[in-house]
Structure formats: structure tokens, C-alpha cells
Design a protein around this nucleic acid. Structure first.
Lengths: 135, 135
DNA sequence: GGTTAATGGTTAATCAAAGCAACTATATCG
DNA sequence: CGATATAGTTGCTTTGATTAACCATTAACC
């Protein structure tokens, strides 16, 4: 499968640009959106948890969280371990999440238009396998 | 196909890291590698040509080309239009290309191991379609 | 129980990559 | 000839990530 990576990577820039453009009105980028995505699924989370989930370093998470805090999209929630900073989406964060969710799904719809659903599902399976092999 | 983008993007960071790690001994990154890739296929090219092919701005290409020139991997070739800077791989650049080509193909082999070849081929088709829809 | 080690988080400095705006030089067209 | 378009460069800014060093708190252990 010579050229597979190249084929994969050719999609990246236009895709991330489209997503960032979509998120821009909310002062978000995809990297910030990732944090919201995680918090939408986990109610609350520590920074290390997010760091490990996305495979990025802790300082990166600190900054994403700081930004989202500034925007009022998330806030700290008290926990028993006082080292830990547990964060959760705010009311506003949840609202922004929902709005973006709709738009992102619509974009997904548009970008995958005309592609066989079975092929898309197959592709998702391939991504999972690639990810497994990459670790 | 909710979550398709997310699935796609989850592969990006680990993949690009693996590639950059592989290219590091040659003082290359994937963004530099792209230029070499193009020049390997086109003998020589102008910066605008490369810029359009990869969908990046001209200054980005200027800097990539400058870096590759410093490394001795490419050099200018004379053309009739004196505005234009036509570049081509040097002897050394070609040699480095070959070495990296082998290693990248091996990595590709490793990362796609155990994945059905038909599924991979279908995935490449999906990438092409996505790219088409993204424009 | 008190010292040591591990864990969670932050800050600062650095780097890579990309974008935009403004500029120079050359070509083309009227 | 002069206006306009094209190719490339430079400078500045932004985004995202990394490493190293550090502080605070908790856990482990003799």
C-alpha cells in the first residue's frame, strides 16, 4: 500500500481548516473543541486524564483549559484530591457544545456526501487498526 | 457517520510524530519531505507550483525550499522566466530521498500490518472523495 | 509519624508551521 | 511606454506542541 500515508495526510489540512473555520465564531479551534468533546462525554475530568486521552503533554492541556475557562465554557469542580484540577463544562459551554455539534455533524454530512456508508464504516475500522499499530 | 472526523483526526498526531521521528536523522520533517516528494515526481518545479499542489501559502514554500537548499537536498535550475525560481533535487537529495522512501514504506508496512488490503484500497478511495468534497 | 517518592499542575523558553501584508523584480498586454 | 499580473521574499503574528524546571499535595514506607 505505497502512498497510503500520503493519501491520508492530503486530507488533513483542508479538513482541519474547514473545522477551524466552522469553530471560529465561537472563538474555538479544533484543539479546544477536543477538550469540550471529552468533557461532554465524561462530565468532569482532570487535566492528566485529558492529556493521556489525546496523547499531548500536560502544558498543552493547561493552556487549552485556561483558554476555555476564559471563554466561560468550562470551570473547575471541587474534588477530594487537592492536587487535582477537575474541570467540567459550564451551562454556556454545554450550549456552545450543542450548537457546534450540530454544525460539525452537518459539515461531516457534506464532506462525506456521495460516499458509500459501508465504505465509511470500513474506513473508521481502518483508523482504529492504524491507531492500534501506531502505539 | 457521526464521529468520522474525530476518528480520522485521532490518527494524525501519532502518525505525523512517527514520520517526523523517522525523518529526523536526515534533518527533515514531513513538511520538508513533501517538497522532496513532489520534486522526485516532477524533476523540477516552481515554488508556486508546489504551493498550489499542497494548498499552502507561498511564504511557506519559500521557507521549506530555503531549508532544503541549506541542507543541500535541492538547488535552483535555470529557466527562461527570470521571476521564477525552478528547483530540483540534487544528487544528495535524490540519495536521501531513496533512503527515506525505503524507511517510510517499511513504516507504512508496519502500521498497516494486519489490515485487509482491500479495506486499505477502499480507504484510499474514500480519501480521494473526501478531498474532492472539501474543495 | 516523618521522610521520601510519586503525582497533578503550572510557568517559561523554544520550536515548527502556517497565515497575512507589504514589498521587489520580472513579464505581459493594451 | 505604462498598467497590471505573476513569482518570490521578508517581517510579523498566531497556533500548537515540547522540554525542563518548579510548586503543591498525596502516597508509600521504614
Amino acid at each position: 500500500m505505497q502512498g497510503f500515508f500520503r493519501s491520508y495526510l492530503s486530507v488533513y489540512r483542508p479538513l482541519i481548516q474547514a473545522l477551524n473555520h466552522l469553530l471560529h465564531p465561537y472563538e474555538l479551534s479544533y484543539s479546544l473543541w477536543q477538550v469540550m468533546l471529552y468533557l461532554h462525554e465524561h462530565e468532569h475530568a482532570s487535566l492528566v486524564e485529558i492529556s493521556q486521552y489525546y496523547g499531548i503533554e500536560k502544558p498543552g492541556v493547561t493552556r487549552r483549559v485556561q483558554r476555555l475557562e476564559e471563554l466561560g465554557y468550562l470551570s473547575c469542580v471541587p474534588g477530594n484530591d487537592r492536587r487535582e484540577k477537575s474541570v467540567a463544562l459550564t451551562e454556556q459551554g454545554l450550549h456552545v457544545y450543542s450548537e457546534c455539534r450540530v454544525k460539525i455533524s452537518a459539515l461531516e454530512q457534506r464532506i462525506t456526501a456521495g460516499i458509500d456508508v459501508a465504505a465509511l464504516e470500513q474506513t473508521v475500522v481502518v483508523f482504529r487498526q492504524l491507531l492500534g499499530n501506531l502505539k
